[in-house]
Design a protein around this nucleic acid. Structure first.
Length: 647
RNA sequence: GCCUGGGUAGCUUAGCGGUAAAGCGCGUCCUUGGUAAGGACGAGAGCCCGGGUUCAAAUCCCGGCCUAGGCUCCA
């Protein structure tokens, strides 16, 4: 491959920032050999300007080059791509008529789409066996550059591949094939050296997928799988999946009797049982206290309005498909998809002086959005949900102080739950309303406030709403999954549409800026995240049942009820079932009750209690007053874990 | 909306043409047990809904409803 030194040279940039001079026409592999023969031999693939490419790919002048070896993070991705080919080869052996579509690696594994194939979950085991044979055979992968005409001939029986080929041809791309044994596939690569490098793999499930993700196209059969370098890694992956299933809020919601979504009541319309509503009420109170301290006034708006309002707010034209609309007599009505128009209407109902601003409205407002039925999922995607909504009407010079106050509240809430989070500032998109002047001013204000508040944030250029820039928080749960959280959005549009104004010092009318802000976002979504984050083991202040009192024997039941009286400011139950103390303890653990008070003859005689928490810590001879004082503190300070027995 | 699974007791599930099962939970009784399962008995099921096939349907077929996972991370 090495060319004479007299050839013209180009420079590439290595990950450490240094430049390397290589002959024009050099491949990624050549670059690796240039760095060192050992690295050259280990090269599996490369990255050019961040894009994963085959090691044979030609580098260009000024390219940022990374070499991918079997120690790289990208190696698994390359291997999974090969695993996808192995799957396709196995499918072709067992289902010769199947047509190939695409088969890329994903974050968690890989998939391959097929058409004209009739498989179900039971067939996956056979496919896995066939794949195991191919891996066992350790077939070498060979890369081949071919002409368009040649490729067309080879893909004569693969209509989807032909479609891709034609597009590639139009783009003028180099056409490459990868083959392993008797199987070949149109593919850009990269791949590992041989199928034997696939350490451990598993086929996960079968799903439908539209060709190219477009619902106007035909539905194909997608087979999902994953692959890892070792059995241990695969097992770890499967364990994590199991953990996620164990924490599933739908399952825990059922076990703990928090909520239900029933056939009779309809899809995406959750019913909150007493236990679930208890948690939600605590969340509501928490935010209400913060709001009232911050000068918000609570308002209430109905669940539906005439569409005149939605026409004025712009929802009717932009959001119509997601709204529930219906005729009543001769008028058209719509369930509210957002609370802001109602709040704007309240503001609009009177005249304001600059002295009155900022005006801050808050409402736990139920909204209705008609998601596609296939998108609904437990509490995370629903038709009806409640937003801890807040809308502020402010003078431009008040934006900074108000946003600052909102970020304080957000920090307080996220810190209370000990959730890690990321912050992003989303700036002006291409299509937007509002003057350059106000956008620039608003963006710089937001950036300044974030800078002061958060250790770290990213700027998402052009990701703002058309009506204003916004700050989005994404928090991470115990499994490392990220969720949309609090948001602060400036809005220059709604004040225009509702012709909102206040009279300034100059006796002229001025346009206020509207700020939309949610801390939990939706109660439903936040509740779901909390259930999964805590695995149902809610902090004491949120727990539906905070303390359960267990009597050693029935003789101690009267004392148990006396103790219950002592703790009646908390959510306390007495377990009066005829069961051994072991069984009662087990029951309390299963129900995730933070604290058990256990009373028998000893306690009754001494006038004290035994305490056990759900983490299996326990203590005898506890004074009633001492425990009650602690519980008050644990509740009011919103401790995340029961900590009486850790003091 | 579309694809592939699934819908059986309060919960978790087995059964897949021939009298509806199990564990947990619940009730009664025996037991009164000291820190994660004592024992016995018992109650509890339009087998998602509607149609069809059959001597016979929870089971097979058709339609619907609900539910789970998917539906570009571009060869």
């Amino acid at each position: 491959m090495s060319q004479s030194e007299s050839e013209s040279q180009i420079a590439v940039v290595l990950p450490d920032g240094s430049e390397l001079s290589v002959p024009e026409g050099a491949s990624v592999e050549d670059v690796a050999y240039e760095i060192g023969p050992g690295l050259g031999r280990d090269t599996v693939a490369g990255k050019i300007d961040g894009d994963l490419v085959a090691k044979e790919a030609e580098v260009h002048d000024g390219a940022a080059i990374e070499i991918v070896t079997d120690g790289s993070d990208e190696y698994v991705e390359v291997m999974r791509h090969t695993a996808a080919h192995v799957l396709a080869q196995a499918v072709k052996r067992l289902y010769p008529d199947a047509e190939l579509a695409i088969g890329p690696p994903t974050d968690e594994g890989f998939y391959y789409d097929f058409d004209d194939i009739d498989v179900d979950a039971d067939d996956l085991a056979d496919l896995e066996d066939e794949m195991a044979d191919i891996v066992e055979a350790d077939l070498e992968l060979e890369r081949e550059e071919v002409s368009y005409e040649d490729a067309k001939e080879r893909l004569a029986d693969e209509p989807y591949k032909l479609e891709l080929l034609d597009e590639l041809h139009e783009e003028g791309a180099q056409i490459t094939f990868y083959s392993q044994g008797d199987f070949e596939d149109l593919c850009a690569g990269p791949h590992v050296e041989s199928t034997g490098e696939i350490g451990a793999f598993d086929l996960l499930e079968i799903a439908g997928a539209y060709w190219r993700g477009d619902e106007d196209n035909e539905m194909q059969t997608r087979i999902y799988g994953t692959a890892f370098e070792s059995e241990d890694d695969l097992e770890q992956f499967l364990d994590r999946k199991e953990e996620a299933e164990r924490r599933d809020h739908r399952k825990i919601g059922n076990q703990m009797d928090l909520f239900s979504i029933q056939d009779v009541t309809g899809p995406g319309l959750p019913l909150y049982h007493p236990n679930g509503k208890t948690v939600l009420r605590e969340l509501e109170r928490f935010i209400e206290d913060l709001n009232l301290d911050a000068g918000y006034e609570y308002v209430e708006t109905p669940h539906l309005f005439k569409t005149d309002l939605w026409k004025r707010s712009g929802h009717y034209e932009n959001y119509e498909d997601d709204m529930f609309l219906f005729e009543v007599d001769d008028d058209e009505f719509g369930l509210k998809p957002m609370n802001c128009p109602g709040h704007a209407a309240i503001f609009q109902d009177q005249s304001w002086s600059y002295r009155d601003l900022p005006v801050r409205y808050a409402e736990d407002g139920k909204v209705y959005r008609k998601e596609q039925s296939g998108e609904l999922s437990g509490l995370s995607r629903v038709w009806a949900f409640t937003i801890d909504d807040g809308h502020l009407f402010v003078r431009p010079d008040q934006i900074e102080a108000e946003v600052e106050q909102i970020l304080d509240a957000i920090d307080t809430v996220l810190d209370t739950f000990e959730l890690d989070y990321e912050v992003a500032l989303a700036t002006r998109p291409e299509k937007s309303v509002g003057s350059d002047e106000i956008w620039e001013k608003a963006e710089s204000i937001l950036e300044r406030v974030i800078e002061e508040h958060e250790d770290d944030y990213v700027i998402e250029d052009g990701d703002g709403a058309f009506y204003g820039p916004k700050i989005d928080f994404a928090f991470e749960d115990a499994l490392g999954r990220k969720w949309d959280g609090p948001t602060v959005q400036l809005d220059f549009n709604m004040p225009e549409r509702f012709d909102l104004s206040y009279v300034g010092e100059d006796n002229e009318h001025h346009r206020p800026v509207m700020i939309h802000r949610g801390v939990y976002g939706s109660y439903e979504r936040f509740f779901m995240v909390l259930i999964e984050h805590f695995e149902g083991k809610f902090p004491f202040w949120l727990a539906p049942e905070q303390v359960r009192i267990l009597a050693i024997s029935d003789d101690n039941l009267d004392y148990a009820y006396e103790i219950a009286e002592e703790f009646d400011e908390f959510r306390v139950e007495v377990n009066d079932r005829d069961a051994t103390i072991e069984r009662k303890i087990r029951g309390a653990h299963n129900d995730r009750v933070p604290y058990m008070i256990i009373v028998g003859g000893n306690e009754e005689e001494a006038g004290n209690i035994s305490v056990r928490d759900r983490n299996e810590n326990q203590e005898y001879d506890v004074e009633i007053d001492a425990f009650r004082d602690h519980l008050r503190r644990e509740r009011d300070e919103k401790h995340v874990e029961p900590d009486f027995l850790l003091d």
